Amino acid sequence: MKKHLQQSPEDVRDRLTREALASLRAGLRVSHAELRKWAERLNTANPLPLPKTS
C-alpha cells in the first residue's frame, strides 16, 4: 500500500518530535548560544552556516 503523500500537521509534528528526541538520545546537541547566533543572521547579507552538533 502506498503511503499518503500528504501528512496531517499533527503527523508531521509527531514525526519531527520523535526525530528530535532520537537526536538527543544519540547525543547530538547544539548550544543555545550557537543556535541564537545562527538565527540572528538568517536574514542578513552573510548568513551563518547551520551550527554543528556536538
Rank of each mutant, 00 (worst) to 15 (best):
E34M: 10
P49H: 03
G27S: 11
R25T: 03
K37W: 01
K3L: 13
E19K: 15
S8N: 08
R18A: 05
A20H: 09
D11F: 06
S23K: 15
A45H: 13
N46D: 09
Q7I: 14
R41N: 09
A26L: 13
A26S: 12
R18H: 12
W38G: 07
A45T: 14
R36H: 06
K52H: 01
E40N: 12
G27P: 15
R25L: 03
Q7M: 15
T44L: 06
A33K: 13
A26G: 09
L21N: 15
M1K: 10
P9V: 00
A39N: 07
T53F: 03
R36S: 05
L16A: 08
D11P: 07
L35F: 09
L42W: 00
S23D: 15
K52N: 10
E34K: 14
L24I: 13
K52P: 05
R18F: 00
L24D: 10
S8D: 09
S31C: 01
L16W: 11
P9Y: 00
L50W: 01
S54V: 14
G27R: 04
G27A: 07
R41T: 12
K37Q: 02
A26C: 07
L50D: 07
E10Q: 14
A20L: 04
D11S: 15
Q6K: 14
P49D: 01
L42S: 07
V12M: 05
E19D: 12
